Computed example of a mutant assay.
Amino acid sequence: MRIDLNADCGESYGAWTLGDDDGLLSVVSSANIACGFHAGDPTTLRATCATAVASGVRIGAQVGYADLRGFGRRFIDVPYADLVADVIYQIGALQALARSVGGSVSYVKPHGALYNAIVTHRRQAEAVVEGMRACAPELPALGLPGSVFLAVAADAGLRPVAEAFADRAYTPDGALVPRSQPGAVLHDPDEIAARVLRMLVDGTVQAIDGTEVALAPESVCVHGDTPDAVTVARRLRRVIEGAGGRVVPFA
Results as ranks from 00 to 15, higher is better:
Ile118Met: 14
Ile118Gly: 04
Val129Ile: 10
Gln90Val: 03
Val63Ile: 15
Val87Thr: 15
Leu68Pro: 05
Val63Asn: 09
Tyr115Lys: 08
Asp82Asn: 11
Leu94Lys: 13
Asp82Lys: 14
Val63Cys: 10
Ala85Ser: 13
Ser104Val: 12
Gly102Trp: 13
Val129His: 11
Thr120Arg: 13
Val105Arg: 03
Val128Gly: 06
Gln124Thr: 00
Phe71Val: 13
Arg73Pro: 00
Phe75Glu: 04
Asp86Met: 14
Ile76Lys: 08
Gln95Asp: 06
Gly70Arg: 04
Arg122Leu: 11
Tyr107His: 15
Ala93Gly: 09
Arg69Thr: 14
Leu97Pro: 04
Leu97Phe: 04
Leu68Thr: 07
Ala61Trp: 09
Ala117Val: 11
Gly72Tyr: 07
Gly60Cys: 09
Ile76Gln: 15
Gly131Cys: 04
Arg69Trp: 00
His121Gly: 01
Lys109Trp: 04
Val87Asn: 11
His111Lys: 09
Leu97His: 08
Val128Arg: 12
Ile118Pro: 05
Val105Ala: 08
Asp77Met: 08
Gly64Tyr: 01
Gln124Gly: 02
Ala81Pro: 00
Gly103Ser: 03
Thr120Met: 04
Gly72Ser: 01
Arg73His: 07
Arg133Phe: 03
Arg74Lys: 12
Val128Gln: 08
Ala127Gln: 07
Val119Tyr: 12
Ser106Ala: 15
Val105Tyr: 06
Gln62Ala: 03
Gly102Glu: 05
Glu126Trp: 12
Ala66His: 14
Val87Gln: 12
Ala127Tyr: 04
Ile118Gln: 10
Asp86Thr: 08
Asn116Pro: 03
Asp86Ser: 15
Val101Thr: 09
Arg99Cys: 09
Ala96Ser: 15
Ala127Pro: 01
Ala81Asp: 15
Ala127Ser: 02
Phe71Leu: 14
His111Pro: 11
Leu68Gly: 06
Pro79His: 03
Gly131Gln: 10
Ala66Phe: 13
Asn116Ala: 11
His121Met: 02
Met132Asp: 02
Arg73Glu: 00
Ser100Cys: 07
Gly70Pro: 01
Pro110Asp: 01
Gly131Met: 13
Ala81Thr: 13
Arg123Ser: 14
Ile88Met: 15
Gln62Cys: 01
Ala127Val: 02
Glu130Thr: 05
His121Ala: 12
Ala127Ile: 06
Ser100Tyr: 04
Val128Ser: 11
Ile91Asn: 03
Val119Cys: 10
Tyr89Ala: 07
Val84Ile: 13
Gly131Asp: 10
Asp86Cys: 01
Ser106His: 12
Gly112Cys: 09
Ser106Thr: 13
Ser106Pro: 02
Glu130Gly: 02
Val63Lys: 14
Tyr107Ala: 00
Val105Glu: 00
Ser100Arg: 07
Val84Tyr: 09
Val63Glu: 08
Leu83Asn: 02
Gln95Ser: 14
Arg58Lys: 08
Gly92Phe: 07
Tyr89Thr: 11
Ala125Asn: 05
Ala93Leu: 13
Gln124Lys: 06
Ala125Tyr: 11
Arg69Gly: 09
Ala85Met: 05
Ala113Phe: 13
Leu97Gly: 01
Asp82Trp: 01
Leu97Ile: 05
Ala125Gln: 01
Leu94Asn: 09
Leu68Phe: 09
Asp82Glu: 15
Val78Asp: 05
Ser104Pro: 00
Ala98Gln: 07
Val87Met: 11
Ile91Gly: 06
Phe75Tyr: 14
Arg74His: 12
Ala98Thr: 02
Arg123Thr: 15
Gln95Gly: 05
Ser104Ala: 15
Met132Gly: 02
Val128Thr: 08
Glu130Gln: 14
Phe71Asp: 03
Ala98Pro: 01
